[in-house]
Protein backbone atom coordinates (compact mmCIF):
# COMPACT_ATOMS: atom_id res chain seq x y z
CA UNK A 1 0.00 0.00 0.00
CA UNK A 2 1.25 3.42 -0.86
CA UNK A 3 0.83 6.40 1.47
CA UNK A 4 -1.51 7.99 -1.11
CA UNK A 5 -4.15 5.28 -0.85
CA UNK A 6 -4.07 5.54 2.92
CA UNK A 7 -4.72 9.22 2.65
CA UNK A 8 -8.06 8.67 0.95
CA UNK A 9 -9.78 9.39 4.25
CA UNK A 10 -7.61 12.41 5.00
CA UNK A 11 -7.82 15.84 3.48
CA UNK A 12 -4.53 17.63 2.88
CA UNK A 13 -3.63 20.97 4.38
CA UNK A 14 -3.60 22.53 0.94
CA UNK A 15 -7.08 21.24 0.05
CA UNK A 16 -8.48 22.53 3.32
CA UNK A 17 -6.89 25.92 2.83
CA UNK A 18 -8.68 26.37 -0.49
CA UNK A 19 -12.08 25.43 0.91
CA UNK A 20 -11.77 27.53 4.04
CA UNK A 21 -10.66 30.69 2.28
CA UNK A 22 -13.43 31.09 -0.29
CA UNK A 23 -15.78 32.94 2.05
CA UNK A 24 -19.47 32.74 1.26
CA UNK A 25 -19.06 29.99 -1.32
CA UNK A 26 -21.01 26.80 -0.94
CA UNK A 27 -18.51 24.01 -0.47
CA UNK A 28 -18.71 20.70 -2.27
CA UNK A 29 -20.96 18.20 -0.46
CA UNK A 30 -17.94 16.02 0.24
CA UNK A 31 -16.83 18.59 2.72
CA UNK A 32 -19.05 17.56 5.60
CA UNK A 33 -17.95 20.44 7.77
CA UNK A 34 -16.63 23.81 6.74
CA UNK A 35 -16.33 26.69 9.21
CA UNK A 36 -14.99 30.07 8.19
CA UNK A 37 -14.01 32.54 10.87
CA UNK A 38 -16.40 30.94 13.34
CA UNK A 39 -16.90 33.05 16.49
CA UNK A 40 -18.72 32.41 19.72
CA UNK A 41 -18.76 34.91 22.53
CA UNK A 42 -20.50 34.81 25.87
CA UNK A 43 -21.66 37.94 27.59
CA UNK A 44 -20.97 37.40 31.25
CA UNK A 45 -22.63 40.45 32.71
CA UNK A 46 -20.73 43.00 30.65
CA UNK A 47 -17.56 40.99 30.41
CA UNK A 48 -17.23 39.29 27.03
CA UNK A 49 -15.77 35.80 27.05
CA UNK A 50 -14.43 34.97 23.60
CA UNK A 51 -14.75 31.18 23.60
CA UNK A 52 -14.07 30.86 19.87
CA UNK A 53 -12.30 33.61 18.01
CA UNK A 54 -12.33 32.77 14.33
CA UNK A 55 -12.12 29.06 13.73
CA UNK A 56 -11.44 27.86 10.17
CA UNK A 57 -12.04 24.16 9.98
CA UNK A 58 -12.71 21.85 7.06
CA UNK A 59 -13.48 18.17 7.50
CA UNK A 60 -14.10 15.88 4.60
CA UNK A 61 -16.35 12.84 4.47
CA UNK A 62 -14.88 9.71 6.12
CA UNK A 63 -12.36 11.61 8.23
CA UNK A 64 -11.75 10.59 11.82
CA UNK A 65 -10.73 13.73 13.69
CA UNK A 66 -9.80 14.30 17.33
CA UNK A 67 -10.13 17.77 18.78
CA UNK A 68 -7.73 18.40 21.64
CA UNK A 69 -6.69 21.31 23.76
CA UNK A 70 -6.44 22.43 27.36
CA UNK A 71 -9.50 22.95 29.50
CA UNK A 72 -11.32 26.15 28.56
CA UNK A 73 -9.80 26.28 25.08
CA UNK A 74 -13.24 26.09 23.43
CA UNK A 75 -13.53 22.41 22.50
CA UNK A 76 -17.06 21.99 23.84
CA UNK A 77 -18.13 25.31 22.40
CA UNK A 78 -16.91 24.17 18.97
CA UNK A 79 -18.61 20.81 19.36
CA UNK A 80 -21.92 22.48 20.25
CA UNK A 81 -21.67 24.64 17.15
CA UNK A 82 -20.72 21.75 14.90
CA UNK A 83 -23.57 19.75 16.46
CA UNK A 84 -26.04 22.56 15.72
CA UNK A 85 -26.97 22.81 19.38
CA UNK A 86 -25.76 26.39 19.41
CA UNK A 87 -25.45 29.24 16.92
CA UNK A 88 -22.30 31.29 16.33
CA UNK A 89 -21.95 35.06 16.79
CA UNK A 90 -19.95 35.35 13.62
CA UNK A 91 -18.52 33.41 10.71
CA UNK A 92 -20.04 30.69 8.56
CA UNK A 93 -20.78 27.10 9.20
CA UNK A 94 -21.59 24.78 6.32
CA UNK A 95 -22.78 21.25 7.08
CA UNK A 96 -22.95 18.85 4.12
CA UNK A 97 -23.17 21.85 1.81
CA UNK A 98 -25.96 23.59 3.77
CA UNK A 99 -25.39 26.90 5.51
CA UNK A 100 -26.53 26.19 9.07
CA UNK A 101 -25.05 29.22 10.85
CA UNK A 102 -28.11 31.31 9.98
CA UNK A 103 -30.71 28.65 10.68
CA UNK A 104 -33.45 29.05 13.28
CA UNK A 105 -34.24 26.78 16.18
CA UNK A 106 -36.55 24.28 14.53
CA UNK A 107 -34.48 24.02 11.35
CA UNK A 108 -31.49 23.25 13.54
CA UNK A 109 -33.51 20.58 15.32
CA UNK A 110 -34.17 18.87 11.98
CA UNK A 111 -30.53 19.12 10.99
CA UNK A 112 -29.49 17.60 14.32
CA UNK A 113 -31.98 14.83 13.79
CA UNK A 114 -30.85 14.00 10.26
CA UNK A 115 -27.18 14.86 10.05
CA UNK A 116 -25.73 14.48 13.52
CA UNK A 117 -25.23 11.68 15.98
CA UNK A 118 -24.19 12.70 19.48
CA UNK A 119 -22.20 10.65 21.94
CA UNK A 120 -21.81 12.32 25.35
CA UNK A 121 -19.38 11.82 28.18
CA UNK A 122 -22.23 11.02 30.55
CA UNK A 123 -24.09 8.86 28.02
CA UNK A 124 -27.31 10.83 28.48
CA UNK A 125 -29.61 7.87 28.07
CA UNK A 126 -33.17 8.29 29.32
CA UNK A 127 -33.04 6.31 32.56
CA UNK A 128 -36.58 4.95 32.45
CA UNK A 129 -36.51 3.85 28.83
CA UNK A 130 -35.16 0.51 27.61
CA UNK A 131 -32.03 0.41 25.48
CA UNK A 132 -34.22 -0.21 22.47
CA UNK A 133 -36.44 2.74 23.20
CA UNK A 134 -33.48 5.00 23.75
CA UNK A 135 -32.16 4.04 20.36
CA UNK A 136 -35.58 4.61 18.82
CA UNK A 137 -35.74 8.25 19.95
CA UNK A 138 -34.09 9.93 16.95
CA UNK A 139 -36.43 7.93 14.71
CA UNK A 140 -39.42 9.11 16.76
CA UNK A 141 -38.45 12.69 16.01
CA UNK A 142 -37.81 11.77 12.38
CA UNK A 143 -41.42 10.62 12.19
CA UNK A 144 -40.58 7.00 11.44
CA UNK A 145 -43.43 4.58 12.14
CA UNK A 146 -43.31 2.28 15.13
CA UNK A 147 -42.59 -0.99 13.34
CA UNK A 148 -39.76 0.35 11.19
CA UNK A 149 -38.38 2.19 14.20
CA UNK A 150 -38.10 -0.98 16.25
CA UNK A 151 -36.50 -2.82 13.39
CA UNK A 152 -33.89 -0.16 12.73
CA UNK A 153 -33.16 0.38 16.43
CA UNK A 154 -32.65 -3.35 16.87
CA UNK A 155 -30.32 -3.38 13.89
CA UNK A 156 -28.26 -0.54 15.40
CA UNK A 157 -28.08 -2.30 18.77
CA UNK A 158 -26.95 -5.49 17.10
CA UNK A 159 -24.17 -3.56 15.36
CA UNK A 160 -22.76 -2.59 18.77
CA UNK A 161 -23.19 -6.18 20.03
CA UNK A 162 -26.09 -5.32 22.34
CA UNK A 163 -28.87 -7.12 20.51
CA UNK A 164 -29.43 -9.27 23.57
CA UNK A 165 -29.73 -6.28 25.90
CA UNK A 166 -32.45 -4.45 24.00
CA UNK A 167 -35.02 -4.64 26.77
CA UNK A 168 -32.63 -3.63 29.55
CA UNK A 169 -32.78 -0.23 31.18
CA UNK A 170 -29.60 1.83 31.50
CA UNK A 171 -29.19 1.01 35.20
CA UNK A 172 -29.02 -2.67 34.25
CA UNK A 173 -26.08 -2.04 31.91
CA UNK A 174 -22.37 -1.43 32.49
CA UNK A 175 -20.75 1.89 31.59
CA UNK A 176 -19.30 0.49 28.40
CA UNK A 177 -22.64 -1.02 27.43
CA UNK A 178 -24.40 2.27 28.09
CA UNK A 179 -21.97 4.10 25.87
CA UNK A 180 -22.52 1.50 23.16
CA UNK A 181 -26.29 2.07 23.44
CA UNK A 182 -25.57 5.78 23.05
CA UNK A 183 -23.48 5.04 19.96
CA UNK A 184 -26.26 2.92 18.50
CA UNK A 185 -28.65 5.79 19.17
CA UNK A 186 -26.28 8.26 17.51
CA UNK A 187 -26.03 6.09 14.40
CA UNK A 188 -29.60 4.90 14.00
CA UNK A 189 -30.57 7.84 11.78
CA UNK A 190 -27.48 7.33 9.58
CA UNK A 191 -26.04 10.77 10.34
CA UNK A 192 -23.39 12.53 8.27
CA UNK A 193 -21.21 12.94 11.33
CA UNK A 194 -20.74 11.21 14.63
CA UNK A 195 -19.86 13.77 17.32
CA UNK A 196 -18.38 12.59 20.57
CA UNK A 197 -17.50 14.90 23.45
CA UNK A 198 -15.12 13.10 25.78
CA UNK A 199 -16.78 9.75 25.05
CA UNK A 200 -14.44 7.84 27.35
CA UNK A 201 -14.29 10.46 30.12
CA UNK A 202 -16.45 8.34 32.45
CA UNK A 203 -14.98 4.96 31.56
CA UNK A 204 -12.02 2.95 32.82
CA UNK A 205 -9.14 2.31 30.43
CA UNK A 206 -10.19 -1.19 29.37
CA UNK A 207 -13.72 -0.02 28.58
CA UNK A 208 -12.29 3.06 26.87
CA UNK A 209 -10.32 0.80 24.55
CA UNK A 210 -13.46 -1.19 23.85
CA UNK A 211 -15.31 2.01 22.87
CA UNK A 212 -12.34 3.14 20.77
CA UNK A 213 -12.48 -0.15 18.86
CA UNK A 214 -16.14 0.58 18.07
CA UNK A 215 -15.13 4.03 16.76
CA UNK A 216 -12.31 2.47 14.78
CA UNK A 217 -14.69 0.04 13.10
CA UNK A 218 -17.09 2.85 12.30
CA UNK A 219 -14.33 5.00 10.86
CA UNK A 220 -13.10 2.09 8.78
CA UNK A 221 -16.56 1.57 7.35
CA UNK A 222 -16.76 5.18 6.19
CA UNK A 223 -18.40 6.98 9.11
CA UNK A 224 -17.16 10.54 9.63
CA UNK A 225 -16.17 10.82 13.30
CA UNK A 226 -15.27 13.92 15.30
CA UNK A 227 -14.23 13.38 18.86
CA UNK A 228 -13.24 15.79 21.60
CA UNK A 229 -10.75 14.49 24.10
CA UNK A 230 -8.00 15.74 26.30
CA UNK A 231 -6.40 12.32 26.59
CA UNK A 232 -3.57 11.77 24.11
CA UNK A 233 -4.12 7.97 24.29
CA UNK A 234 -7.62 8.42 23.04
CA UNK A 235 -6.71 11.08 20.48
CA UNK A 236 -4.12 8.66 19.17
CA UNK A 237 -6.89 6.58 17.62
CA UNK A 238 -7.94 9.40 15.29
CA UNK A 239 -6.34 9.96 11.89
CA UNK A 240 -6.17 13.69 12.31
CA UNK A 241 -5.72 15.87 15.39
CA UNK A 242 -6.92 19.45 15.69
CA UNK A 243 -5.52 21.33 18.69
CA UNK A 244 -7.37 24.32 20.07
CA UNK A 245 -5.82 27.01 22.22
CA UNK A 246 -7.65 30.10 23.48
CA UNK A 247 -10.46 29.66 21.02
CA UNK A 248 -8.25 29.31 17.97
CA UNK A 249 -6.83 26.37 16.08
CA UNK A 250 -3.23 25.97 17.17
CA UNK A 251 -2.45 23.01 14.97
CA UNK A 252 -4.25 20.67 12.57
CA UNK A 253 -2.19 17.68 11.50
CA UNK A 254 -2.40 14.08 10.55
CA UNK A 255 -1.79 11.78 13.45
CA UNK A 256 1.76 10.48 13.05
CA UNK A 257 1.28 7.64 15.45
CA UNK A 258 -1.81 6.37 13.69
CA UNK A 259 -0.36 6.69 10.21
CA UNK A 260 2.71 4.85 11.36
CA UNK A 261 0.65 2.17 13.06
CA UNK A 262 -1.23 1.75 9.81
CA UNK A 263 2.01 0.25 8.57
CA UNK A 264 3.63 3.10 6.66
Amino acid sequence: MSPQTDDVALSTTAERKVVVQSAGAQPDKDWVIVTRGLKREYDMGGEIVRALQGVDLAIRKNEYVAIMGPSGSGKSTLMNLIGCLDTPNGGEYWLSGQLVSTMKDDELARVRNKEIGFVFQTFNLLPRATALHNVELPLVYAGVGSAERKERAMEALTKVQLGDRAMHRPNELSGGQRQRVAIARALVNRPAILLADEPTGNLDSTTSEEIMRVFETLANTGQTVIMVTHEPDIAAHARRVVVLRDGKIASDERNQKVTSSLGL
Binding site: A109, R110, R112, F118, N189
Partner: peptide
Protein backbone atom coordinates in the same frame (compact mmCIF):
# COMPACT_ATOMS: atom_id res chain seq x y z
CA UNK B 1 -34.20 19.55 32.11
CA UNK B 2 -31.52 17.10 31.11
CA UNK B 3 -34.02 14.80 29.43
CA UNK B 4 -35.29 17.80 27.48
CA UNK B 5 -31.73 18.61 26.43
CA UNK B 6 -31.17 15.05 25.25
CA UNK B 7 -34.42 14.99 23.31
CA UNK B 8 -33.52 18.27 21.65
CA UNK B 9 -30.05 17.01 20.79
CA UNK B 10 -31.68 14.01 19.14
CA UNK B 11 -33.84 16.24 16.99
CA UNK B 12 -36.93 17.15 19.01
CA UNK B 13 -38.32 20.48 17.85
CA UNK B 14 -39.91 22.99 20.19
CA UNK B 15 -43.24 21.71 19.05
CA UNK B 16 -42.32 18.13 19.91
Amino acid sequence: TREIGVRKALGATRRD
